[in-house]
Design a protein around this nucleic acid. Sequence first.
DNA 1: ATCACATGTAATATAATGCTTACACATGAT
DNA 2: ATCATGTGTAAGCATTATATTACATGTGAT
Lengths: 112, 112
Amino acid sequence: MENDSLILSSHEDYTKLFDALSHPMRIKIAGVLSEKRRYVSELAKIMHMSRPLLYIHLKKLEEAAIVTGSYEISESGKSMKYYALRPFAVRLTPELLAELSKTIPVDLKSND
Amino acid sequence: MENDSLILSSHEDYTKLFDALSHPMRIKIAGVLSEKRRYVSELAKIMHMSRPLLYIHLKKLEEAAIVTGSYEISESGKSMKYYALRPFAVRLTPELLAELSKTIPVDLKSND
DNA sequence: ATCACATGTAATATAATGCTTACACATGAT
DNA sequence: ATCATGTGTAAGCATTATATTACATGTGAT
């Protein structure tokens, strides 16, 4: 019974998550991966997107930890990189923002 | 019994929301406003932030509709602009992303 | 050898964001 | 008049984000 579910604690975790989901193509990617995992080229075809651009978006999603990549050798012997969506559940409310707000210093540039 | 709660339907609504919350200072602003409404100069002092910069952040929050501004004349006769946080509740899950994903065309530049 | 298909990155161009400094205007109190 | 306090915006700059084009590598099948 493994729990691979995404755990968010700091406001940095949340800003990364929101940033990752602030672009329609990244929501699309996440949506496509929610159905089943895909390898990069396959995903690029589905998305009608070049791989270089796809990598840029995947990087953001991966940094936010809502997506994970793993290598696998196919039957034909080729190295494939599979991406999958991690399970998560965030209840986004004013209460959550109030909570996160407490840990954000008024002056981000100093160390308050 | 008025319901001023935020209603999100399209993926544009969601990307705007996520984009608005992708910066720590905007989460901080939302958190501060969750306590009580504030007028702009007051908020700027609390945030240790210049008004020009605050306006930039407020604009994003307002475009995402999670914050609303309204003018009021103070007792001393000055025009004040009050900002308040609107109530909202978003359940952010893979299912939501899958749902939104359906309405996002694979090629954003054309009109599919 | 060359093709099809998989991996990835480097370099570049363009657009959008974040932030600062400097303005401008209005009102009430001194 | 000028100060304190409120409103707002315009211009410039530095950085980041987005997107493209071009390149380099490896495997298996023909």
